[in-house]
Design a protein around this nucleic acid. Structure first.
Lengths: 144, 144
DNA sequence: CAACTCAGTTTCGTCACGAAACCGACTCCG
DNA sequence: CGGAGTCGGTTTCGTGACGAAACTGAGTTG
């Protein structure tokens, strides 16, 4: 996906995709969440071209999704961490993962768990009373 | 994003993004969910090049996310509907929207509501006991 | 019968991407 | 003390996806 904007779209989905909708970007966030934090680790894991990785990391840092921190001077070496803003993308990743598990993967290779007791965790749409909803009970309404 | 695959990635997120991670694709799904179902409506709403829209719609139909149905013969005219598989992407869209609402939009232009009582609905990560979780309580574990 | 609608297709130039080589600072090994 | 290796990139170059706009063809409307 290009970094071009979706001009004329007054929509949070479009705004979000302008930032994280480029090719590779969400996979980089996934890998950093999984613990890969250095340039060469990411490059090896993703098989992404190095110049493209450079660009994506720079963009993610500019947008406040990743934080670039030096873990060694002499020589200067850097690693990337998720910021709070970056961590909040986990929900979207989980939703995509669940959809992929159900519709395109044979066997889900990874599952999301609660650390405390290792019980499975799912992404869902919930009302304030805790009810989990299906799509036909939903509507997307403009705010007035 | 290109329609090229993320080769060598055994990951449902990557699998999902191979299908819906191309530029425009998720915005098309959003618009169809909002009720825009004809070629020219989508083209006008998105400002997408017509040849690109043609390709995206074809791909979405091939993948079973949209269904192309004739609503008029003489002249033959078609509209696009979400399949069940397509409807299940709403959760991922909602997650992206929420992230965009919080981090990049000034005022959320649209909200997700329960049809029945118009109460707000949110995407969240929930354990089986109904507890809503934050990212630091989560881990992504390989299935054995 | 001319203008308009709808759902595309064709053409063409540009720009983002992928591959691979290169670079500079530093460390490790013999 | 010299050569290989590591890390985090940058540079170069060819290809292919995209954007813009014109065109098409079947049918409808005034």
């Amino acid at each position: 996906m290009l970094n071009r904007s979706y001009r004329g779209q007054d929509c949070s989905i479009a705004r979000a995709l302008e930032i994280v909708g480029e090719r590779w970007t969400l996979l980089i966030v996934r890998d950093v969440f999984l613990g890969l934090q250095r340039f060469d680790q990411l490059q090896a894991s993703l098989g992404i071209a190095r110049n493209v990785l450079t660009g994506r990391l720079r963009r993610l840092v500019d947008e406040g999704i990743l934080e670039r921190r030096r873990y060694s001077r002499h020589p200067a070496r850097y690693e990337y961490r998720l910021t709070e803003k970056g961590n909040e993308l986990i929900l979207a990743l989980a939703a995509l993962q669940q959809w992929g598990d159900k519709h395109v993967s044979e066997k889900p290779p990874r599952v999301l768990r609660r650390k405390r007791d290792k019980k499975r965790v799912v992404a869902a749409l919930v009302a304030r009373d805790g009810e989990v909803l299906l799509h036909d009970e939903l509507e997307l309404a403009p705010t007035v």
